[in-house]
Amino acid sequence: MLVTALATASVLVGVAELDRFVLLASRLPRTAALVLTGAAMAVTGLIMQLLTRNRFVEPTTTGAGDAASFVLLMLLLTTPGLPLAGKAAVATLGALVGVFGFLALARRIPVRSSVLVPVIGIMYGGVIGAVTTFIAYRTELLQELLSWSVGDFSGILRGRYEMLYLAAAAALVAWVAADRFTVAALGEDTARGLGLDSRGVLLLGVTIVAVVTGIVSVTTGLVPFLGLVVPNLVSRMIGDHMRRAVPLVALLGAALVLGCDLIGRLVRFPFEIPISIVMGIVGGVTFLWLLLGPASQPGRASRPAARPVPVGRRRG
């Protein structure tokens, strides 16, 4: 309902007079891109949180986005002019390596310090990001770098966004395999007791996260906070049973992106405020509200619920 309303509004708002051509070439693609990106990125946040058993991680805060940008920059420097699909594939590979690197780091953190997991992620991403920015600065490619790491939907036209359907399909795969992810998140021992192939699930999850991150990077650019805010909101509402959570996460993700995009287009009409700025404000405030807000019962979603790798001390 909310999504439909927002999507309709999104299609109707714009500078240019609404005619058939504008509708098909620009407005509809933009709205579709918003919905697909919002849904897919929110779901990747949920996957990352279940895989790390930590509420405070998402692809853009754990090096996935930074690693994708890094390899895209390298690609641009060495073999410019690759088609969009090629770029997306390379970015996906970069994100894949980036996430595995983060998970390897997270694995080394002692159980008691699970609060550190998001911090490690931000620092890890920060290092990759700094190197990338430096190289981009020296090679005058900062503009390109921004286009990957900072979501912007104003330039979306027909023929430039369709790959996002693939990203949404990846999120759909996550839904199909949802029970595995939930079982993986139950804890290492419980998962093994239930006969889960943890490695397979990890590989699947990281691949989905990488595919979405890679595609979104080269098409619209990543949207911050989304993967953090939406799954936490949904966890509050209905819990973490992933099969049940995915539809709501996807819908809310789409709604949030549509909403932020609309705000960005309306506040200084006819000019646009980039969605990342709106998202930064809306997402940041929502997240703070989640942390400190009215229903902050102990043991709720507001707590870093988790341990990346439970070693489990046993005493008599």
Binding site: L50, A185, G187, D189, G195, L196, G239, H241, G312
Partner: peptide, 27 residues
Amino acid sequence: RSRDLARRLAVLRQENHLPIRLSVEEL
């Protein structure tokens, strides 16, 4: 295979901490 074993044998640890939010029925 772990999955085959899981149909024959269930095991419950001493400490059971659930890192995520699930209802009793879901668990």
